[in-house]
Design a protein around this nucleic acid. Structure first.
Lengths: 124, 124
DNA sequence: GTGGCATACCTTGTCACGCAAGATATACGG
DNA sequence: CCGTATATCTTGCGTGACAAGGTATGCCAC
């Protein structure tokens, strides 16, 4: 039984759900343009997609850990002249391979969805 | 059954994740073509997308419950001349509204992703 | 100095949801 | 009857995005 959530039925955004599984792809893709550090990725994402794919840092860091553990990225600390130390991430070869794979999967899925949604359904 | 996994799949497929949040959209869209029952939706999906968006019935029924509880669909039992009773689902007006909303959200998201992925990242 | 602010990284807890696996029930053919 | 097909429903698990909170450092004004 789930007595909860019957009245609090505010319709959530599916954007959050849609992002599921595509975050790794997004991050890998951004890193393909050169190394970057966490905060940089967050702001890049917000900027390049006009907020459509915005994520918080609390979301991003676990993603980066997964990527690191899977050896899709490597890590380098750098302490700039001014400011706090930053943790830079670089794509590995395996990361590039995975990026290609995920891109392909995304494309396949998106095509299937688009085709389906384009189908006229005027019945009843 | 899972006909997948011909590759070394310690790396899970993101297809499953990508589907997150889009299942309701898919089902609502299919129902826009007229009422249908659970098993019918499962087979329709598999057929119309060549398996790209395949779901199991164990996945679908909870979705249908959510839709029903949210009053996006209504339900009608029908016992055919031959065969077991079927539970037919029809879209409500609210369901149609929600369908439009989800479609819009999907399109926005997909466009953002596509645009992002199309960006060349040959740096470094 | 010290208090405040910005930068940057990290952790914890919660909740939703897709799915595998199994249960149930009905009809029908041999 | 028993096996198979149709059809609906339930349970348990794992995953992952997110909010909220925490830590640490450097910079600047007063």
């Amino acid at each position: 039984m789930t007595p909860s959530a019957d009245s609090t039925d505010d319709r959530r955004s599916i954007e959050r759900e849609l992002k599921r599984g595509s975050l790794e792809l997004i991050v890998l893709h951004l890193l393909a343009g050169g190394e970057a550090y966490g905060y940089e990725i967050v702001s890049k994402l917000t900027a390049e997609t006009n907020g459509a794919l915005e994520v918080t840092d609390g979301t991003l860091y676990p993603v980066l850990y997964r990527l690191e553990r899977a050896q899709l990225v490597t890590v380098r600390w750098e302490t700039p002249e001014r400011g706090v130390p930053r943790k830079y991430y670089q794509l590995t070869d395996a990361g590039r391979t995975e990026l290609a794979r995920l891109t392909h999967e995304w494309t396949t899925f998106a095509n299937a969805m688009t085709t389906l949604l384009r189908t006229e359904r005027e019945g009843r």
